[in-house]
Design a protein around this nucleic acid. Structure first.
Lengths: 234, 234
DNA sequence: AGAAAACAAGAGCAGTGCTCGCATATTGTT
DNA sequence: AACAATATGCGAGCACTGCTCTTGTTTTCT
C-alpha cells in the first residue's frame, strides 16, 4: 500500500490543510475574494507549491462547493431524519436548510448563488447536491399520492410528464408510489426553499418582510406551510 | 445652465460610453471578470482616467445593476401591461421575466445572484428592483381578495401580519382592496419566479427537468399555473 | 486676464493567478 | 546498495488587476 508511505500521508495532510484554510478564508471574505496566494501564506508555503495539490483556483472552489453541499446535507439530515411524521419532516428540511444558510452565508452563496467558475458544474457536485432533495422525495413517497390535485393532475398527464427527468434516478421504489404530479410539485417546493433563502440572504426582502430575525422566520414558516398544502401533506 | 457647457456634455457622453462598454463586457465575461482597465482600453483612455467618472469598480457594478433592473422592468412591463386579464397578465409577468433572463443571463446573475460588492445594496437599486413586483401587486388589487384561502387566512391574521412590510409602500389603494394574505402569497409568487429562473440558469435543473428549451418552458409554465391557483387567480 | 476647478495621462504600489526552471527528497527498480 | 524515476518545494517572473498620486493641460468662473 502506498498509503503508508511518508509522502502519501503528507500529501493527504497538506490537502486537508489547504481545504481547511480555504474554507476559513471563504467564511471571512467570500468566494470572489478567496485567494490561492493567501492560502499559501496561511500555510507558510510558497504560492507556487499549492499548484502541486490543486490544479487551479477553480478546482479549489469546486472542492469547497462539494464540501459545502455535503456539510449542508449532513446538517439537514441529522435533524430531519429524526422526525418520522411527513409534515414535521418537511418543515424540518426547510427550517434546517435555512438555519445552515444563515450560519454559512458565504458557503450558501457559493453553491446556490451565481456560479463563480466559468459555467461548468463539474460532475463531482451532482451527487452531494441531490442529497437533500432525495430526503424530500422520500417524504413524498411515504405520504403517497396525496398531491394528486385535480387542478393540475390532468395537465401533468397531458404535457408535463415528458418534460420531467427520469424518476428512477431519484428512487428505487416503483413509480406508483410516487406520481409525476408529486415529483413536479416536489421540485417546486425545493426550488422555493432555496429561492426564499436566497432572497433573504441576498437582500431582496428589504421593505417586504420585517427586518428582524423573528419576522423573517415567521414568513419562512408561512411559506413552508403553504408548500406543505401544495405537497398534499397538510 | 451647465448642461450646455462643453465639459458637461462631454462628461455625459463619456459616462454613457463607459456604461455602454461595461455592459458589453458584462455580457461577454460576466460580473466577476469585468475589469475597469479593460473598459478603459476599449475606450482608448488611460485606466486612471476612468476614476474621474466612477469612484470604484463597485460603483460601476452598481450602475450596471440599476440599469439591469430597469431594462428588465422595461421589457416585462412592455409585454405584461398589454394584457388586461389578471390571469394572463400574471403569466406574462412570469414568462417575460424568464425570457429576459435567458437572453441576459449575466445581467440576471448580477442582480439576483450572489451580491458581488461587499454586502451593501445601495439605495439606488430599491426603486428599479420593485418595479415588476409592483405590477404583480396591481394584479392582486385588481383581482380582489380571492387569495383569502381559509387554510392560511387565519394564520395570517394571527401571526403573519406583523411580520410583513408596510403595504402602503406598495400601493396608494386602501388595504381593503389588498389583503395581507394576498400580499403574503404575492411575495411567495415573485420569490418563486426568480428562484425558478435562478435554478434553471445556474444549472440546478440538471437531471430534474428535461434539458431541452421546450421542456424547461413547459415546467416553468406549470409552476406559473400552480402559483396562479395560490394567488386565487385561476 | 487670472484664479479655480476639472480633466487626462503616466508612473507606481500592492495584489492576483499561474508557469517555468532548478534544487531536494522520496520512491521504485536494477 | 546504487541508480533512475518521480514527487515535491522554492523563487523568479509574466501578465494582469484595482487604485492612488503627481504632473501637465484644458475648460470654466470670477
Amino acid at each position: 500500500m502506498t498509503t503508508t508511505g511518508i509522502r502519501a500521508q503528507n500529501r493527504a495532510a497538506v490537502m486537508e490543510a489547504i481545504t481547511e484554510s480555504a474554507t476559513r478564508q471563504l467564511l471571512e471574505v467570500g468566494p470572489t475574494q478567496l485567494s490561492v496566494r493567501a492560502v499559501a501564506r496561511d500555510l507558510g508555503m510558497a504560492s507556487s507549491a499549492i499548484y502541486r495539490y490543486v490544479r487551479s483556483r477553480d478546482e479549489l472552489l469546486t472542492i469547497l462547493i462539494v464540501r459545502a453541499y455535503d456539510d449542508m446535507a449532513d446538517y439537514v439530515e441529522s435533524k430531519a431524519l429524526r422526525v418520522a411524521d411527513p409534515v414535521r419532516r418537511w418543515r424540518a428540511i426547510g427550517l434546517t436548510s435555512r438555519e445552515w444558510a444563515l450560519d454559512n452565508p458565504q458557503r450558501f452563496a457559493l453553491i446556490y448563488g451565481s456560479p463563480v467558475p466559468g459555467y461548468a458544474a463539474p460532475e463531482d457536485t451532482v451527487g452531494p447536491a441531490t442529497r437533500i432533495p432525495a430526503v424530500l422525495v422520500g417524504i413524498l413517497q411515504q405520504a403517497g399520492t396525496h398531491a394528486e390535485n385535480p387542478a393540475f393532475s390532468a395537465r401533468v398527464a397531458r404535457s408535463l410528464r415528458p418534460a420531467l427527468g427520469d424518476l428512477r434516478t431519484w428512487s428505487d421504489l416503483s413509480t406508483q408510489d410516487f406520481s409525476d404530479a408529486s415529483f413536479a410539485v416536489g421540485v417546486m417546493a425545493w426550488t422555493h426553499i432555496i429561492g426564499s433563502i436566497s432572497f433573504e440572504l441576498f437582500g431582496h426582502r428589504h421593505n417586504v418582510v420585517g427586518d428582524s430575525a423573528a419576522d423573517r422566520r415567521v414568513y419562512f414558516t408561512f411559506e413552508l406551510d403553504v408548500l406543505a398544502g401544495l405537497l398534499g401533506l397538510s
